[in-house]
Simulated scan of single mutants.
Amino acid sequence: MKNTQELLNILTLEDKGDDNFEGDSRDIGSPNVFGGQVLAQSLNAAYRTVPKERILHSLHAYFLEAGNLNLPITYSVQSIRNGGSFSTRRVTAHQGEKTIFILACSFHKEEKGYEHQRPIKTAIKQPEELLSWSDMLEQFGDFLPQRTKAFLSIERPIDFKPVHLPNPSEKKDLPPIVDVWFKLKGDVKGLELPIKQQILTYLSDYNILTACLNPNASEANFGNTQMASLDHSMWFYRDFDFDDWMLFSIESPNSFGARGFAQGNIYTRDGKLIASVAQEGLIRPKKKK
């Protein structure tokens, strides 16, 4: 995928009737279906069954089985409740007879209320001062581990610019913090809020588990560690646009028992908090052969 339109083509599912929808997958450098894709596609299915005036405010999901890139995914939506203010949906994703994913999500009608938010970090470098993943590949490709080089070589509809650029050859433990600027490629004008939330859900599965790996970076890396999303939650707050760089600010309070937990906030460049994310993932050291 090269741009936003190609991403939207993947996230928009085919209606199979009776609240069942079907979608295909794209390779992002992993042998299995990308978790962010399944999250966003399931949200696309759920949105197609709720009143248009209701907007997603939270989702909670479990990844049950690795998805096969070569098979279509069927999403079945169950209407749990339509109340006076909230609508709740459950989505189950299948490949053949195998259930690979479940999602619960809630939609809320627009209401006015009290307001506050955690401020964006200010003492960090801006995107213009940083290298993107493509820049890193171009400048350091000959020195990167083969697996990292292959991952960075995949074309994506999003540019990522990490604020801190660790040197993989240093073998140094790092703080459990990751700050990443991101920006969509291609035309992003005129997108409706449900579509923007689906895109944000897609990209929320990028980068987040890196914060869990950082404190053990002297011995742990992407080559010797099996990593996979186990569960994923998001809370959505304010409307926004993708017309500028946005910041995903992540921290990991704990890793233990081959699992790591990370949480983060997503901001517009001018400091508006638009969503929060929490994920637990598998962080399993690979056994030496």
Rank of each mutant, 00 (worst) to 15 (best):
M1H: 03
N3L: 05
T4W: 01
L7D: 03
L7R: 01
N9C: 10
T12D: 13
L13H: 08
D18S: 04
G23F: 15
N32D: 15
G35K: 03
G35L: 07
Q37L: 09
Q37A: 13
A40V: 02
A40Q: 03
L43S: 02
L43H: 00
N44K: 03
N44W: 02
A46W: 01
E53D: 13
L59V: 07
H60E: 07
Y62W: 03
Y62F: 08
L64A: 13
L71Y: 09
Y75N: 08
Q78S: 14
N82K: 11
S85Y: 02
S87Q: 11
K98F: 04
I100C: 12
I102N: 09
C105I: 03
S106R: 07
H108Q: 15
E110V: 09
K112E: 15
G113Q: 15
G113P: 14
H116I: 13
P119A: 15
K121G: 07
E128G: 08
Q139N: 09
F143L: 13
L144H: 03
Q146C: 01
F151K: 12
R156M: 08
D159R: 00
V163G: 01
V163C: 03
K171L: 15
K172S: 12
P175F: 11
P175S: 14
V178H: 08
D179C: 00
W181S: 09
L184M: 13
K189H: 07
Q197P: 01
Q198N: 09
I199C: 08
I199K: 04
T201E: 04
T201M: 06
L209C: 07
A211L: 05
C212G: 09
P215K: 08
N216K: 10
A220T: 11
F222V: 15
G223K: 12
T225V: 13
S233N: 11
Y237M: 12
F240L: 03
D241N: 12
D243V: 06
W245Y: 10
F248N: 02
S255M: 15
N265A: 10
N265H: 11
K272Y: 00
S276P: 05
K286I: 13
K286R: 14
K287E: 15
K288P: 11
